[in-house]
């Protein structure tokens, strides 16, 4: 009786041991040298294997980071701490790269833009754009049929009641799907902090723009001349903002005769001088592009709020960090 139990145990156990030993030996022979940083990166990750980074699990993300394919701040769960830890292992300083968002650069709403014909067909901009470039008189504008809205995986872009797509900047992750899908190339990725935008995509000459849309860029270049920071660029009959130079001063939006440049003036910042830190050196006054700071050497400096455009030049130039934008 006991033999009937013993023999299977011994024979199978023996086979198991034999194979186990063989495999242990084989694992030594076929050992693979892996980058030690992979396991180190893996250790500082949350380990939830949620896939929020776009890779299947933390291991794959760690491997991608070490391979240089994924950014060190790719883990949305770990946040800044994890980024810092991963950065230390990889020897990379966490970049302070700005969040980007998609923006629709057209304000050709139902009332602003003229219609060329009535479009009855598939509600898809790509289909509509095949028929004489879409139903709008302006061949560069947003058709408002919601191709981007249907494709957005984050529910971040919607065609508003005026017939133009609008991005919810809170939800937008700058994945670029709408940018690629839009047949009119009327969606751009821009840094989220930049408040000013040219809401026109028309490369037509001023007269044609005027005929097809009330709020189009007519190429008058007033904004180019008005910008104190050389941030306005002009090509193909259209003004562009160079966001590397733009300081959110919103002067261009004030000057634009057709209101083709949009800025939310409610968000305009004002410079504020902390009199305790101020050494009354007049550097800010000299650098202010709109002469919004008054004051002489050894006298209190004052910001003229109605003139200040919140460009931040004074904040940058102040040697004592006495100026903040609010």
């Amino acid at each position: 009786m006991i033999e009937q139990i013993l023999w299977p145990v011994i024979s199978l156990g023996g086979m198991g041991l034999l194979f186990g030993g063989g495999l242990a030996y084989a694992s030594k022979i076929f050992a693979i040298e892996t980058d030690p940083r992979v396991s180190k990166v893996r250790d500082v990750l949350p380990g939830a294997n949620c896939g929020g980074c776009g890779y299947p699990g933390c291991d794959a993300f760690a491997a991608a980071v070490v391979a240089g394919e994924a950014p060190i701040d790719g883990c949305p769960v770990g946040g800044a701490d994890t980024t810092a830890n991963v950065g230390t292992i990889m020897g990379i300083e966490p970049s302070t790269s700005e969040k980007m968002v998609a923006r629709v650069i057209c304000n050709g709403t139902n009332t602003n833009a003229k219609e060329k014909y009535k479009y009855y067909g598939i509600t898809d901009c790509r289909a509509a754009s095949m028929i004489a470039g879409g139903s709008k008189e302006c061949q560069y504008g947003c058709l408002g049929l919601g191709t981007c809205e249907n494709l957005c995986p984050f529910d971040a872009i919607h065609v508003n009641e005026n017939g133009v797509a609008e991005v919810d900047e809170e939800k937008c992750t700058a994945c670029g799907i709408c940018v690629d899908a839009c047949p009119k190339l009327v969606i751009d990725l821009v840094p989220v902090s930049k408040e000013v935008r040219v809401l026109c995509n028309s490369k037509d000459k001023g007269k044609e723009v005027k005929n097809s849309c009330v709020v189009g860029c007519i190429g008058c270049k007033i904004c180019v001349k008005a910008c104190p920071f050389d941030a306005m660029e002009f090509k193909d009959n259209l003004a562009y903002i160079n966001y590397d130079k733009c300081t959110n001063c919103m002067i261009c939006a004030e000057k634009c005769p057709t209101n083709a440049i949009y800025a939310n003036f409610a968000n305009r910042k004002k410079a504020f001088i902390n009199q305790d830190n101020c050494i009354k050196c007049t550097i800010c006054k000299k650098n202010c592009p709109v002469e919004a700071i008054e004051g002489e050497v050894k006298q209190a400096h004052i910001v003229l709020e109605d003139k200040c455009v919140g460009c931040g030049v004074c904040e940058e130039k102040c040697p004592k960090d006495a100026i903040t934008l609010k």
Binding site: L12, G16, G20, L23, A26, S27, F30
Partner: peptide, 17 residues
């Protein structure tokens, strides 16, 4: 199954290498 499992492990190691 024991034999097959052990063999597959071996094959896995070899292929990975």
């Amino acid at each position: 199954i024991l034999v097959i499992a052990a063999l597959v492990q071996l094959v896995e190691m070899i292929i990975q290498k």
